[in-house]
Design a protein around this nucleic acid. Structure first.
Lengths: 209, 209, 209, 209
DNA sequence: GATGAATGAGCTTTCATTCAT
DNA sequence: TATGAATGAAAGCTCATTCAT
C-alpha cells in the first residue's frame, strides 16, 4: 500500500487509460466522490456544482438528471465487474479455483474503486425500479455462481458437506461487499493483500481440511 | 423457521413482553418498517401518517421530529445490543469462546430485529453528528473486542498465526452485519441456524486445525 | 414606589375588588403576562396551558379563541381608560387643567397596568379589523380631546401660539404611551411620580411662561 | 411636505444614490413595506413573492431566510442611525446643543425612513436573541448619551434642577420614536418641521427659562 | 373540568430542473 | 459553455381548534 493522501477512488493508472479526462468525466468523478462522502440524497446539485466551480444550473450541461448521474457512476462500476466475472465464468478452472479468483478479484476491485462500489451497495435504492433491477440482477448472478461453485466443490469433496452453500454465499458477499466501509487506499494494507487474506479466510473456513 | 407472511421484525414473543403496545410504540414500529423498506430519506412523514391512518401533522403528536424518530428506533436496537455485549465481555470464558458467542448472538440478533438492525447499519448517516458518534462508538467497541479476542486466541495458539486480526475482524462484521440484507423471517433458516452456521464458518476459517 | 419583586401588572388593590379571582380571570392574567413578555404571536395556547398546569386543549374550556382572549384583555384596559377619560371630559375644569389631569392619569394608569397597556399599544394588529377599529377609535378620541384642549389653551393665551397642537398631541401620546416599554413596578419611581414628572415636562414645554 | 401618493419610505433622493436598484434591493424594500403594513409575523413569504411577481420559493433566490430578511432591513436603518449618532457624539458642541441636534435628527430620520424605523421599534422581537441584543444595545447607547447630556446641562444650569434626567430621557425617546406611528410623507408637515417642533417642545420643557 | 387524540390549514424552506441569454 | 433567474412540487413542522370521553 502506498502511503499518502490519495483520495479514495483516485483513478488508478489503468483506469486513466480507459476513461478520458473530459469535463464530463470530471463531473462524474466529483459527484461519485460526494455521493460516497455524504450520500446521494444529501448531496445537492448545488454542492456538486460548487465543487466544480459551477452553478447548479450549469451542471445540467453535463448531465441529464441527478439520478442519471448516479446510474452512470454505478454503471461504470458494474461494467468493470461484469468484465472479470465473465472471464472467470468462461475459464476452465475447477470450481474451487473460480471461487478463489472471484473472491480475490472482487475484494480487490471493491477496494480499488471505493466510491463507485459503495454507491453500488448503498445508494442503489435511489434509482428507479428498472435500474434497481439491473443492479439486483447482476448481484444475483454473482451469488448464483458462487453458490453453485460451492455446491460443486462440495460434491467433489473439497468443501465440508455440512456447510449450507446458500448461507456460505451470503457470508462471502457480506464480507467482500463490506470492504468499502473501512478500506482506505492509504491504509496498512493494499487492495490485493485484503483480497488474498479474505480468500484464505473463506476457503479455509469451507475446506474439508 | 416458522412459515408464513410474518412482517420483518415482527416483534418476537420475548420482545412483546418488554415493549408495551402503546400507540406510540406502534408509530415507532411502523416508521421502522417503512424506513427499512424505502429508506429514511424516501419515507415522508405523510407516508408514515397514511400508514397509521393519520395526517402528517398528527404524527407529531407522538414524535418530536422525524430524525428523533429514527434515533429512537436505532436506540432500541442499540440498547439490546449493548445488553448482550456487556454480558459477554464480563463473562469469564476464553477468548475463542467469547468470539463464538458474540458471532452467534449478533448474527441471530440482527436476523431477529431485521428492520432496526438495518437502520443501524444503513441510515445512521441521516442522524446528526453527535448521534452518529453514539452509533460509531458502539460499533467500534464491538470491533475492538473482537480484534483483541482474536489476538489473544492467536497468542494461545488457537488461531492461525498468519491471520491479520484486524482484517479478520472486518470480515466477521461484514458477514454478520450483512444479514439484514437477505434474511427473511419466513425463509428456510431460523435466526439461530444462521448464527450457528456463520460462527462455524468463521471459526474454522481462523482455526489452526 | 413599593419595593419588592412585584410582577408587572400585579393587580392593584382597587382592581382586586372589581375583578373576581375566578379561574377564568387567572387564565386572562396569565395570558396577558405571557403576551406581554413574548408577544401574542409567539405565545402558543400550549404555552399558556403549561403555565396554568393545563393542556392546550383544556384552555378552551375558559376561552373561545386565542384572539378573543387577547381582545378581552385589551378590553379590560380599554374600559378602565374610558372611565377616567369620560370623567375628565365631563368635568368643568379649564382646558389646561384637563390636559394636566389626562396626562397624569394616563401615564400613571399605563404604568400601573403594564401588561394590558402594552398589548393595547403593540398587539392590537393581531385583532380582526372590526376590533382594531374599536381600539383605534378610542385612541382617536383621546387625541382629539387633547388637541382641542391645547387649541383652547392656546386661544386663552396659556400655550405658546407657535406650537402646532396636532404635533404637540402626538408628542404627548408618544411620551405617555411609551411608558410600558421601560417602567417596572419595582423601579426607582412610582407610577404617580412618573405621571407628575411627565405632566410637568409637557406643560412647561407648552407654556407661554 | 411634498404632496402626492408617495409610498411610505419612498427612497428619498439622497438614499437613491446610496442604495442601488438591484432586484435584491427591491425584495428588501417590498418586504420592508409589507412588514410595516401588516407586521412581520403576518406577512408570509408567499405574500412577498406575490407582490414581486414571484412564487414563494423564488424569493429564496434573493434571501437566505425570512428572519435574515428582517434583520437586513433593520440593519440598514441601524447603520444610518449610527452614522449621525457618532457624528454628534464626536462633535465639540455643548450638551444642550448635542441634545438639540440628536432630537432634531432622530425625529426627522425616523420620519424619513418610516418603514425601516417602525421595524426597528416594533418587530425586533422576531429576531433571534443575539440580533435583538444588537438592537437593544444601540438604543441603550442613545439613551445613555441623552441622559448624560441632560445631566451635564443641568450641572451647567441650563436645565431645570428638579427634572429627573432618566425620566426626561424616556420621555424624549417615547416622543421621538413614536413618529412612525402617525407620520405620513404626504401629510401636513415635513420630516424637518416635525424634528424642529419636537426639539422646541422638549427643550423649552427642560429649560430653566 | 380536563384529557388525549386528531385535524387541517398554513408556514418556511429545499431542491431538481428549465431556459433565455 | 455557463449564468441568472425562476419554477413547482414537496417536505417537515407548527398550531389553533375540536370533540368524545
Amino acid at each position: 500500500m502506498t502511503a499518502g493522501h490519495a483520495a479514495p477512488d483516485d483513478p488508478a493508472p489503468q483506469r486513466r487509460k480507459r476513461r478520458q479526462f473530459t469535463r464530463r468525466q470530471q463531473v462524474l468523478d466529483t459527484a461519485a466522490r460526494m455521493f460516497f462522502e455524504r450520500g446521494y440524497e444529501a448531496t445537492t446539485t448545488q454542492d456538486i456544482g460548487a465543487e466544480l466551480g459551477l452553478l447548479k444550473g450549469s451542471v445540467y450541461y453535463y448531465i441529464s438528471s441527478k439520478q442519471d448521474l448516479l446510474f452512470e457512476i454505478v454503471q461504470e462500476y458494474h461494467q468493470d465487474t461484469r468484465a472479470y466475472f465473465e472471464r472467470i465464468l468462461a475459464s476452465d478452472r475447477t470450481p474451487i479455483e473460480k471461487l478463489r479468483e472471484l473472491i480475490t478479484t472482487e475484494t480487490a476491485h471493491t477496494a480499488t474503486n471505493l466510491t463507485r462500489s459503495s454507491l453500488f451497495y448503498t445508494e442503489w435504492r435511489s434509482l428507479d425500479p428498472d435500474r434497481q433491477q439491473t443492479i439486483i440482477a447482476e448481484r444475483a448472478r454473482h451469488e448464483r455462481a458462487v453458490e453453485s461453485w460451492i455446491r460443486e466443490a462440495q460434491a467433489a469433496g473439497d468443501v465440508r458437506p455440512d456447510t449450507d452453500p446458500r448461507l456460505a454465499t451470503f457470508a462471502i458477499f457480506g464480507m467482500v461487499n463490506s470492504v468499502y466501509r473501512w478500506f482506505r487506499p492509504d491504509g496498512r494494507r493494499t487492495a490485493e493483500e485484503v483480497g488474498a487474506e479474505f480468500t484464505e479466510l473463506v476457503l479455509s473456513g469451507l475446506s474439508t481440511r
